[in-house]
Write a protein that binds this DNA or RNA. Sequence first.
DNA 1: TCCCGTTGCAACCTTTGCTGTTACGACTGC
DNA 2: GCAGTCGTAACAGCAAAGGTTGCAACGGGA
Lengths: 144, 144
Amino acid sequence: MSANSRLTLAAHALAWIGLYQRQGHEVATSEQIATSANTNPVVIRRLLGELRRAGLVESRRGVGAGWSLARELESMTLLDVYEAVEPGPLFAMHRTTPDQGCVVGYGIQPAMQGIYEGIEETLRHELARVTLENVLRDVLAAPR
Amino acid sequence: MSANSRLTLAAHALAWIGLYQRQGHEVATSEQIATSANTNPVVIRRLLGELRRAGLVESRRGVGAGWSLARELESMTLLDVYEAVEPGPLFAMHRTTPDQGCVVGYGIQPAMQGIYEGIEETLRHELARVTLENVLRDVLAAPR
DNA sequence: TCCCGTTGCAACCTTTGCTGTTACGACTGC
DNA sequence: GCAGTCGTAACAGCAAAGGTTGCAACGGGA
């Protein structure tokens, strides 16, 4: 599976903004977050843009601009973040339509479709159990 | 997520071989399976090679060669197939190591690591609940 | 009114992984 | 020896993600 770091990076950004705000700052810049994540500010802006569309963060422009949380970390779950940054399904069907004249080729897609739906529902449920507050607590609990 | 059709294709191939054997045939060829899946025989051989390494199928060479199941479909689960064809973890960490001098950059990877492990364990449990026999039954149950 | 720092966004390149394709050697029953 | 199939390497094509550059838009302050 082409492993995807978008969820990790989004959680990183949210935890960073949340911690920064608790330290008394109003907004965080993509530059600061990019430094922490060791990547490019544009990558952060793109990702935070998706989170903004999902209502998780807000952005201000002009002087003293930057990003702030739209909700408390306690009320954000990894499922919210996952849905904001991961569009497609977990498992894909065939690239090309199987032979519809073959019994297996005809029935395989509806069969796997149904199975995958149940599995993804369970995945969503698991993701919904973890709040960004949990994430930040785990981050701060890392032993030095 | 770069959606991955390997699990779907592997399930297709196993269901095809299983059904073919129940119809009284000894072995199935990669050519036949490729026709059903509407792809290239080499793609099928590569994938079945991974399933062979996992002990799910066997192959014979020479005249009258082909593939056969190494176990009954009832004793194979989607987890067996998943582990055979999907090497990496479901969610990836950052591409580049985050800033270890930053509290969040330092703690984010162990934090997400622990969270992801729990989620993947649940995913494995779900995959283990579905046997290839279930898959074949669903395939044959597709309405014409 | 101008300046400055930041977001918003488009365009492009590079890398990576999967898939498709061709080619050919290895094997085995006849 | 022949024919049919696997086993595998090599390469091209394609798509997605990430990285990079460039620049317009915004808005508070001087």
